[in-house]
């Protein structure tokens, strides 16, 4: 199994497998190991999946996080797909899941995940990062910590710099 990066820069074995959206006519096949399935298919089969600790979901760039609003406590892991690293929708999706819908379990970045975006992802609430395999995972810790702080409030801190300066 490939490795996965944690927000503190540590690296662990990845146990989760991303199940792609089935092609037309095909049915969803759930593997033996912990699996992430498309969020809408999870919702359709919620009776079967809810509360299972080894079934999570993934959202694509254009998916609305609102669909999970009532189910955030039933999901052990939500992954957000970056179809292309330069497609920034996933950052908003992540913040909404965290800050608006109160998702507390693991939030993971998947897809075109590169090194130089990791710190932004961390600030927007991602816990784990499935780095694209051709990138050097040993450089992740450095990329996660280029900046010691930020100007804005985000998922990682409630306090924008202007409030920290005041105290």
């Amino acid at each position: 199994m490939p490795d996965i990066i944690f927000r503190d820069g540590s690296i662990c074995q990845n146990e989760w497998v991303v199940v792609p959206r089935p092609e037309n006519g095909e049915s969803l096949t759930i593997p033996e190991q912990p699996a992430l399935i498309p969020a809408d298919l999870w919702l359709e089969n919620r009776d079967q999946f809810a509360g299972k600790r080894d079934i999570g979901v993934w959202l694509d760039g254009h998916d609305e996080p609102d669909v999970l609003a009532d189910h955030v406590h039933e999901l052990p892991l939500v992954a957000i797909n970056f179809p292309k690293f330069s497609d920034g929708r996933g950052y908003s999706t992540a913040r909404l899941l965290r800050e608006r819908f109160g998702f507390k379990n693991e939030l993971r970045a998947i897809g075109d995940v590169l090194l130089d975006q990791l710190q932004f992802m961390k600030r927007c609430g991602f816990d784990t990062y499935d780095l694209r395999p051709d990138k050097d995972i040993r450089k992740a810790a450095r990329s996660l910590n280029f900046f010691s702080q930020g100007y804005q409030a985000a998922t990682d801190t409630d306090l924008p710099l202007f409030r920290r300066r005041a105290s």
Binding site: S86, D87, G88, F120, Y151, P160
Partner: peptide
Amino acid sequence: EIIRQWSTFHPEFAYL
């Protein structure tokens, strides 16, 4: 200046 600080390295809006 307030907007400059808010928009500098904004983690959500670097890939608009």
